[in-house]
């Protein structure tokens, strides 16, 4: 980790939401507390936590919508968490970090797919020819080329979310944060979005942060970070993290189904290898445990 190129570095990050009067009252419970996190360039990280765990707050802090109460955030080596950061600096950070949100409807600006994808590049002042090239590429990447001239409101949720992703890809960011981007989609739409996420990471080397509460989604990442009550609880490969089944349960989370079953079997005294994670691996492990006995 240390020798790799660190893209996002968070040190002792705290954040407390203001109360209704707009005062920063000390008694309010913090949404994030003393969080440390390092993400290397090109990593694929899932951030896992139940509702209200502070995972979305983290996304908002990283995209500079919120300013931390205390602590430091470095993005690409630049300190970006100071309260007197200039608008130009924020603009530079947002060029590097793209955000895809939960509700696809509330991210699309234009009445034609193509024009929506163009929105980001337009804001960056990209030349027209270059912009057209980027739109074509981005739409190809998400498989929406044939919908180029369509109106977004006639698309399905998954398709809208793909257009939203294309809009971010066209800005050529170094990192994309998916803030529960699959939460409002049907299983097919979810699968498409996850596949695009992984392709972006593998083919383009884009750093991907997937904030989610779906375990099977999180398990596909290279690394899983579990946040509970504003604190980082677990951090490691999916296998490491999901072996702490009891700990996950105590936080109101579950491991992927296969993992849960193995855990239950182990509790009943049937010894199953704890190494498996994906569905096939779990089936394999349970099968060999039962046959082996």
């Amino acid at each position: 980790m240390e020798q790799k190129d660190i893209f996002i570095e968070v040190k002792g990050l705290c954040f407390t939401y203001n109360d209704d009067a707009g005062n920063n009252s000390p008694d309010a419970s913090p949404a994030l507390c003393n969080l440390d996190l390092k993400v290397a360039r090109g990593e694929y990280v899932s951030i896992l936590g139940h509702n209200g765990s502070g995972k979305s707050t983290l996304a908002k802090l990283l995209s500079m919508i919120l300013i931390p109460t205390s602590g430091e955030i470095y993005i690409d080596g630049h300190l970006v968490s100071s309260p007197d950061i200039s608008d130009d600096e924020i603009y530079e950070v947002r060029k590097k970090i793209g955000m895809v949100f939960q509700n696809p409807d509330n991210q699309l600006v234009a009445t034609v797919v193509e024009e929506d994808v163009a929105f980001g590049p337009e804001n960056l002042g990209i030349e027209r020819e270059e912009m057209k090239k980027r739109i074509t590429e981005a739409l190809e990447m998400v498989g929406m080329t044939e919908y180029r001239r369509h109106a977004p409101h006639k698309l399905s949720g998954g398709q809208k979310q793909r257009v939203a992703i294309a809009g971010i890809i066209a800005m050529l960011p170094d990192c994309i944060i998916f803030d529960e981007s699959t939460a409002m989609l049907d299983p097919l739409g979810r699968r498409d979005v996850i596949e695009i996420m992984e392709r972006l990471n593998k083919e383009r080397g884009i750093t991907v942060l997937n904030i989610t509460h779906y375990m099977d989604e999180a398990a596909r990442a290279n690394r899983v970070v579990v946040i509970n009550d504003g604190e980082k609880v677990l951090d490691g490969t999916p296998k490491e993290v999901f072996s702490h089944v009891d700990e996950l349960h105590s936080m109101g989370l579950e491991a992927p189904q296969g993992k849960e079953l193995i855990h239950a079997l182990n509790k009943c005294g049937i010894k199953v290898s704890d190494d498996a994670l994906s569905e096939e691996e779990c089936v394999e492990a349970i099968y060999s445990a039962l046959i082996g006995d």
């Binding site: 919508i65 509330n106 991210q107 600006v109 980001g120 804001n123 960056l124 800005m171």
Partner: peptide, 10 residues
Amino acid sequence: ELAVAMECRC
């Protein structure tokens, strides 16, 4: 939400 999304798109 739209305002936030627009800001994030620079």
